[in-house]
Design a protein around this nucleic acid. Structure first.
Lengths: 243, 243
DNA sequence: CCAAAAGTGTTACAATTACACCCATGA
DNA sequence: TCATGGGTGTAATTGTAACACTTTTGG
């Protein structure tokens, strides 16, 4: 129910039986929004990139004294007239220079004291980007790609957010094959397999992998070959447009 | 990033290149929370119950003129010092009298104009309850169980929220077998199968279903039989405690 | 004894896994 | 010609799907 009636939980004498309380208030039409009930809304993005054989995420050093030397996810406040999805796109674009990236909402973190500056509720997204296309001026800004396997402590509850998003990515790569989004438009099957292996954290059988992906009929053979490799070059594919 | 620095997106002369803007602000330590950036936070619950052979959800009639005669999910504002998960539990307990219910966060809906009273961002949960144990005084409060198959229009974006939660439940019943939570402690395999069929919206083969569930080794045979049925009674089981 | 649902096993089919050899390229 | 990874097929296993008859109970 979207009824905005903060008084329900504010009448101390009624706290012992909330069930009754709410029933009494159902038809009050009280939709005034109490300013004391407002929270600061932020968005945090776990931005995944795939660099050679490694899965990485983009992190920045915390600018809070309290969390000095800890890494944080990239995030920002949601503007008053902004859809949270748009806010996530904005952050992504600001930080990587990219548009049309893969982005998925994962979970909202709202523990009362998760942020030292006050009540900040954060909607977590993960994003998959082509790391080569990211325009990141890495020196001096403390903005870096971190191998996922090296992630330890992070500021705030960002380690928990990362874990949640990473688990979601592992599901998604199997169920919806979102892994393509980490690669350039043209890629070899070997590179695609590397993506799956990096995300799932285990090796896959090459023949079975190729069979499975090709059977899904989502790849288009470009009749091109890899260049600049010192071995037999692999065929290049691209993700099939949906009809 | 959890840095609270609303100015980033408020400097008009810099809007054309947000990438640069943010980089400049990274080390400002500006964590003041601007009150204009606050939103009202609510929680909405899709409360599922299973009645005989039918999946139902608990709805209440909207108390906004604008949405008169439309049905809404059960929800409330999140209190200032309240974890959103707790708020969802609170709503559930208020509305059904139940504790220890199954509850899962699904998605956060925050389109700027989704609520007529202002900027209300809602975290959606779904919940699975034993419908027989719910203490709902149904008359006069416009609080009713609605068959899922009859759901049409709803107030606000609640139809979308419902759809999202229902899809999630369909996944969850296959992947994590959450369906038990809709039944009493003791149940027959037939009743469990009815739950799966109602959620998935299709009939299942009885023998294959029994084989699969029993092979999972999560049921304990109670050596009891159904009573009050006018046919051969089925065995009763309960969900195995985890070790 | 009839109606209604419980209980049970086998076979076909699909999906997944394991596994080894030849091929094309650059150095 | 050698080192490196690309490319390919088959057999075994596992999981899923299809399917029919006997049993127990209440009426």
């Amino acid at each position: 129910m979207e009824k905005i009636n903060h008084k329900i939980t504010r009448q101390p004498e009624l706290h012992h039986d909330r069930h009754e309380v709410l029933l009494k208030n159902i038809n009050t039409h009280a939709i005034e929004i109490d300013h004391h009930m407002k929270v600061t809304l932020s968005v945090d993005c776990v931005i995944f990139g795939f660099d050679e054989h490694e899965l990485k995420i983009l992190l920045i050093r915390s600018d809070l004294d309290e969390y000095k030397n800890k890494w944080t996810l990239l995030g920002d406040l949601v503007d008053l007239n902004e859809d949270p999805d748009e806010a996530a796109y904005r952050i992504l674009n600001m930080r990587t220079g990219l548009k049309d990236v893969y982005l998925e909402q994962v979970h909202t973190f709202g523990r009362p004291h998760r942020h030292p500056a006050g009540r900040v509720v954060s909607i977590a997204y993960y994003s998959l980007v082509n790391i080569e296309k990211c325009k990141i001026t890495t020196q001096a800004h403390e903005l870096h790609w971190h191998p996922v396997k090296d992630i330890r402590q992070m500021a705030f509850d960002h380690r928990q957010i990362f874990d949640t998003c990473f688990r979601r990515l592992q599901q998604a790569v199997l169920e919806r094959h979102v892994g393509f989004n980490l690669l350039p438009a043209k890629f070899s099957l070997r590179r695609l397999q590397n993506v799956y292996e990096a995300i799932l954290g285990k090796e896959l059988d090459r023949r079975n992998f190729r069979k499975k992906i090709l059977a899904m009929d989502i790849l288009e053979d470009l009749d091109e070959l890899e260049a600049d490799v010192q071995h037999r070059p692999g065929k290049l594919y691209r993700f099939k447009k949906i009809n």
